[in-house]
Nucleic acid binder design. Structure first.
Ligand SMILES: NC(=O)c1ccc[n+]([C@@H]2O[C@H](COP(=O)([O-])OP(=O)(O)OC[C@H]3O[C@@H](n4cnc5c(N)ncnc54)[C@H](O)[C@@H]3O)[C@@H](O)[C@H]2O)c1
Ligand SMILES: NC(=O)c1ccc[n+]([C@@H]2O[C@H](COP(=O)([O-])OP(=O)(O)OC[C@H]3O[C@@H](n4cnc5c(N)ncnc54)[C@H](O)[C@@H]3O)[C@@H](O)[C@H]2O)c1
Lengths: 215, 215
DNA sequence: TGGGTAATGTGAAATGAGTAACAATAATAT
DNA sequence: ATATTATTGTTACTCATTTCACATTACCCA
């Protein structure tokens, strides 16, 4: 089964779009509606569905409720997912306070930080000393975490998480991390995301200038 | 010239890695060192360099200082880039306070927010009412911005930015935005990034179970 | 000075992702 | 009942990206 990161991301997008459509009162949906909703082509939608065994009706499209059920099953949305955040700085706090994760069944249950001044056991999402990570994660069977610490600390934190039984990480530190073969590591490098926007805007600008000087 | 988003992202990664290597005292670098540093293959590195006209020495590899100069030129790092942030909430503030952007020549020069309680003209990075966006951006010739507002406001904000002459946006709102054909729009959907990690961890788990029940 | 070697640079092959085309078919209209 | 039509499901194609393979070349050392 073809499960590239991108195709899984699209499935999540479909699901989101379906909930919106359902909320708007729609009962059925066609491949081109979904394509519009997430910015893909109708072919892409049908192919994705074909690959994951999501079937519709010749003429008549897809029944939204059925699709949502199948997607929920496929994407593991039937039980809530508990995750932790390591590094309660700007990014860490943003993630902790974001209400949108709850809507997709993801719950940040604790944060960890070396700066003990930040410790707060009473908060809705407690902030705990890093030393307690291992015990906490094992006890609560936490499988997924976020790394939001400075790049210099990231590898060390990752290793601690691995030894605590964590199997996948979303990493914000702009550095290449080493992990075991079957570990799930997803890097988000906001610096580079921004730099690429700047690059293409400059490129556009340069191009416009070239065009002008040509004429 | 092949300039996919991914290849440009890799160039930025090379540049970052080269600065690290230079800081560590290295003078020359081989394609496989760079590959390791950014998590690619040596072939990939050489192919990228070949495409962008970055040349090295048969035997002897690449001279770090020369590479950095060429990359700085290619990536427009020779003059500082001024950008704005719209939405001074969690994500917006995280970006404003991040020191790493300065190191890559990107400077957030102002933020804008509809919540006038947040207005602060005296801050190092001033926070201004949204109404002042257009004048500010035009006057300062701002070409790039970040959208860090709730999804419901994002399209409207984007249109305001376009009318202010902005040519490219990094968007954090989890919604599909419509923009003119040549506008540069880069979406970061942290929800989906996290959901894909959760998905693959669950998939791994499921697989392990299946293996076990098979034996 | 010349042979051996360690790297690059690049065309060709392999892989992968996305698009297009259309045959199959269920709903609807006549 | 039959024809028409709209939409799926899937195969084949196209395009882009990555990897492979190796000829080329500069450096080093005897
Ligand atoms: N803020 C941004 O906009 C931004 C942009 C691009 C990249 N990043 C990256 O994201 C990561 C987090 O950024 P941030 O702005 O939230 O940083 P931050 O400095 O605001 O927060 C980092 C937090 O990590 C804690 N910490 C340090 N070492 C730790 C350790 N070993 N274990 C646990 N906690 C530790 C610190 O006490 C602090 O609370 C960094 O790697 C940064 O490079 C951030
Ligand atoms: N915080 C996260 O971890 C996270 C995760 C995933 C996605 N996101 C997305 O990122 C975006 C920002 O998230 P956040 O957590 O920073 O939100 P936030 O609520 O903390 O901040 C949003 C800010 O935008 C301002 N605002 C509202 N309407 C505005 C308008 N029309 N013009 C200008 N400013 C306006 C608000 O006053 C507020 O200051 C949202 O779209 C959110 O869905 C955030």
């Amino acid at each position: 089964m073809k499960t590239s990161k991108q195709s899984i991301a699209r499935l999540h997008s479909y699901r989101e779009a379906l909930y919106r459509l359902k909320y708007l009162g729609f009962v059925k949906v066609f491949s081109d509606n979904l394509a519009d909703a997430i910015g893909a082509t109708a072919s892409q939608v049908r192919k994705d569905f074909s690959i994951f065994g999501l079937i519709g009706n010749k003429k008549g499209g897809y029944v939204i409720d059925e699709l949502i059920n199948k997607l929920d099953e496929l994407l593991g949305k039937n039980q809530p997912q508990h995750i932790i955040v390591v590094g309660s700085g700007n990014i860490g706090k943003a993630l902790m306070s974001y209400k949108g994760f709850g809507k997709v069944g993801i719950h940040v249950v604790a944060a960890f930080d070396t700066d003990e001044a930040k410790t707060n056991r009473a908060a809705e999402i407690p902030i705990l000393p890093l030393g307690e990570l291992k015990e906490f994660a094992k006890q609560r069977h936490i499988k997924v975490g976020v790394i939001a610490v400075p790049d210099t600390a990231a590898q060390q934190v990752l290793e601690m998480m691995i030894s605590a039984g964590i199997k996948g990480v979303l990493n914000f530190a702009p550095i290449r991390l080493n992990c075991p073969e079957h570990f799930v590591l997803n890097n988000v490098n906001l610096g580079i995301e921004l730099e690429t926007v700047v690059y293409f805007v400059n490129a556009l600008n340069r191009q416009a200038h070239d065009e002008k000087s040509k004429s």
